[in-house]
Design a protein around this nucleic acid. Structure first.
Lengths: 336, 336
DNA sequence: GTGAAAGCGCTAACAG
DNA sequence: CTGTTAGCGCTTTCAC
């Protein structure tokens, strides 16, 4: 195990003062002679004294560590969110304990457990796809640990939320497809128990209705990744009454559809329009470049963390403030 | 601040036993009657007792938290590494404090400071591009905190390393380009003070030499991202003696080159071959799909964390064990 | 101005 | 088998 770092006690012994004096000096307490204060501070600097955060938290009953649980780190959106969180955390003096649920309920529960044991002062999370019970999150709330959900929120828990405007994003994307002449628009989305699916579907459906197009359930598929999208899209595109447009829940899925379309030698965007959701680097790398709903993960992370900091500083007042991060339709080459 | 969670003391009071009895029961100590043990454990479970890790670490002078500093989270390779680390951490019972240096020296130093104060039991890191002094890392070592460098290692510090086989990866990629008939192969890489640049350059140069091709410094550019690659590649491709192949330090750069080539209506791969390094999702999304040197970030993370765990468990014996993660050339469509 | 002492949650001798 | 006690690093009354 690491050898113990220098402590306030060591300094006290060496300088022949009491520990309280050292403590006061390091905290820049006003009632202390300039001389001793300086002496202590110099010694501390010279010997690389680092305050022991563990002792601090345990004593003051408050920590500066927050917990973050994301489904997956290798996912452009979540990675951006984490970046945003880290950015604010650094600025505001917090550290981040990171966990990933890997979309599994068990891992999520275990992570929450560790967060509780680590006595974090707040938690930011996006729930796993598998999760349908929320007792673990409730336990955080019961212990007065502020929880902020982002993106994949949990409606059953009373807490703050940061969501991207899924409904509006889906609505405007679908409307754009309609306006450019598409009539049979398919929608590829994640499992329906996720709020994000419901909202995006809502935007999609409302756009169709608004423009007098029928809502055909055969055009709505539960499919949200590259590999699965290829066969599903291929089958649809080979049917007699094939869709002339696809709106997918993320870029990976959209690119899977694009791939399938190319294999069938369909002209993009003339015969088939495709729109994704995320706007990661892959959207630029593809050819034709992908039209997609830009989802600013960084801003989501920043907002979520700012909300959390505000709540921690306000002494945990359970303010009912949520944030909606606007999306932006980025029109590129897979739509007319 | 969060209300204090239930403690061993609370349990002791409630059950009218001493704290040591509770402690022993919760640690499943052998010398304790089954009855009391059960009684305590039941009560603890019922009331959601969570051991206070802070108190534990401070008492036992060892923590189960490790620190990770990466330059950037939104970078497929680093995100994968973090995933790998989290995977092993979860399995082995560690938590991860994550920091990002954002390629800045100052942020890196600050992160190390916090890690020191957080009394982590080990650190995994890949150094920032800006960093040229290593005192902060040395301080970790001086405090007997095991440090494992991955990818962007630091040769000045005596510690363990996990690197991907940059030299071999670059060598085989360049050889492949040569074998498929390319004669003027350009190399786009990161700043030369990074080990990774030196090694990849070494592989590139040696491949040229081995096959009797001249090493032309005009063909070697310091350029490692999508946006910068476009103008630089464009200029080269318009020169009279243009390259017939490009080998880039990462996929983003390679895709920038690809983009520039397409704008000039050059046939890929007939007139220009392109090879990247990373193999992220964008390599599949692009059209033509990118030939690239697959760099398994997940394995890097797993190996680094396993090395760290081994070292922590072996009581910090400064074993001199390094790991080299093999790369794999993934031939797709941007090479002949 | 400075020190002594208590206590945060927990473990680990040392007693009994 | 169980309790008492000291102490991990630190802050914070309360004295002097």
């Amino acid at each position: 195990m690491p050898k113990p770092q220098i402590t306030i006690k060591d300094i006290a012994r060496e300088l022949e003062v009491s520990v309280s004096t050292v403590s006061r000096a390091l905290n820049d307490s006003p009632d202390l002679s300039k001389a001793t204060k300086q002496r202590v501070q110099d010694y501390a600097k010279l010997h690389h004294y680092n305050p022991n955060f563990l002792a601090l938290s345990i004593k003051k009953r408050e920590s500066t560590v927050i917990g973050v649980i994301v489904p997956q780190v290798t996912h452009h959106f979540f990675a951006s969110v984490v970046e945003g969180i880290l950015e604010v955390a650094d600025r505001e003096g917090f550290s981040v304990l990171l966990f990933r649920s890997h979309e599994e309920y068990d891992k999520e529960v275990r992570s929450v457990q560790r967060l509780l044991s680590s006595r974090v002062c707040g938690v930011l999370t996006s729930v796993a796809k598998e999760t349908t019970r929320y007792d673990h999150f409730q336990e955080l709330v019961d212990n007065d640990i502020p929880v902020i959900f982002f993106d994949r929120i949990c409606v059953d828990i009373q807490s703050n939320r940061v969501v991207i405007d899924d409904y509006a994003g889906a609505l405007s994307a679908t409307e754009y497809l309609i306006k450019t002449g598409c009539k049979r628009i398919s929608f590829f989305c994640s499992p329906m128990h996720l709020e994000i699916s419901k909202n995006r579907r809502g935007g999609y459906v409302d756009a169709l209705r608004k423009h007098g197009l029928p809502v055909d359930n055969d055009l709505i598929k539960i499919c949200d990744n590259y590999d699965d999208a290829i066969p599903v899209a291929t089958e649809m595109l080979q049917s007699e009454n094939r869709p002339d447009a696809f709106f997918a829940v993320n870029d990976e899925t959209a690119l899977g559809i694009l791939h399938a379309s190319k294999l069938l030698h369909l002209k993009i965007p003339d015969e088939v329009s495709i729109c994704g959701f995320t706007d990661g680097f892959a959207a630029i790398a593809s050819d034709p470049q992908l039209t997609t709903v830009g989802q600013n993960g960084f801003d989501v992370g920043v907002s979520a963390m700012e909300l959390l900091v505000e709540r921690i500083r306000s002494n945990g007042e359970p303010m009912l403030k949520n944030r909606i991060i606007r999306t932006k339709l980025v029109v590129r080459e897979t739509t007319r």
